[in-house]
Computed example of a mutant assay.
Amino acid sequence: MATITFPVPSTTTSRFAVAATNIPEGPAALLRTVDGPYLAHIAGRLGTRQLQVAREDLTCLRWDPGQITAARPEDRQLARAFNEAEQFAVVTAFAPITDQPRAVQVARAAAYALAEATGGIAADLVTGHVLTPSTRERTRFVLADRWLGDVLPPFRANGRCTAADPGVDPEGVNGCACLRLRTRGLRRFGLPELQITEVACPHDLTALNVLRTTARRLLTDHWSWLATGPAVSDRAIPDALDLTQNDFNDFWGTTRRVPLTPPSPFQVHLSPLTARLIAVGPPAHFEGTINHWLWGDTLPLGLHDAQDAPASHPLPTAA
């Protein structure tokens, strides 16, 4: 089995921004009265490189608020308001890679607290998305909590794609190659981003779930590797990755079983595009296109239809 090698940085940087009508000078002071499970973490890091807060306005920005978008349709109004804002509180976490994911969780918790204190809108400058308002950072890390920048593109290229539905016409399996999906967020954990390309529009959700599952497994293995205290700055991993139901469930942070057909693991093939980008595709032994693979029965059933976290069935109640 071949391997691919990529550099692992000793530190990574994450940035969040809060847009509000009035950001006070010295916005860090607003965090000194924050409550919740991250109170001690914020207090202990505030003012260090691991948690810096600064006020910025349009005269000094080195990033473009107009590039921040909505990950969900219901967030579009928030994104427009963020795009038009003139004052911001920017939270920066420059932390050792071994301090992840706690470092980014503390930084985002601080951004949420600033948004609550100022009545503002928080955004993740790594994923480029606004964050859900009135949210608090949960203590358990879940990759599905908006860390990956994983969103579906506009349906059928905003209506321009007329490829047939493969459920009606078999030719539709390879009816187009419109889609390129890429993660935005793995780099803050010291991993390359993932990309899948030449995907036909009908397979968009399946392709996205393949990326999600692959990302979760790579991250799990990466943290296990970091826990060994490696003395090298490069890491080699197999170019064939076996995935299971647990990896898909772990992405969502759920223990609920998602039915698999077939029950055996499925495999993806990894190809380095650059030092910071890895392509994901079908295993080397697969005969057919990437769309045949995404449409076929070699992938878990849940990857074809799970867009959100699988809901837990409620427990029965007494009569």
Rank of each mutant, 00 (worst) to 15 (best):
P9A: 09
S10R: 14
T21W: 11
L30Q: 13
L31C: 12
V34E: 12
D35H: 10
I42F: 10
A43F: 11
Q50D: 13
L51E: 06
A54H: 11
D57L: 15
D57G: 15
D57T: 15
R72A: 04
R72V: 05
E74G: 02
R76E: 07
E84N: 06
Q87M: 12
A89R: 13
T92L: 12
A93S: 15
V104C: 05
A109V: 04
A115Q: 05
A117K: 14
T118I: 15
G119Y: 12
G119D: 12
G120W: 02
A122S: 14
L125Y: 02
V126C: 01
V126D: 07
T139N: 03
W147D: 04
P153S: 04
A163I: 04
D165K: 07
E171C: 01
E171V: 05
A177G: 05
L186G: 07
R188D: 00
F189Q: 03
L191I: 00
I196W: 06
L205Q: 13
T213W: 04
R216C: 03
H222Y: 00
W225R: 11
S233A: 13
P259V: 08
P265V: 10
F266I: 02
V268N: 05
I278R: 00
A279L: 14
P283S: 10
H292Y: 09
D297V: 05
Q307K: 02
H313I: 14
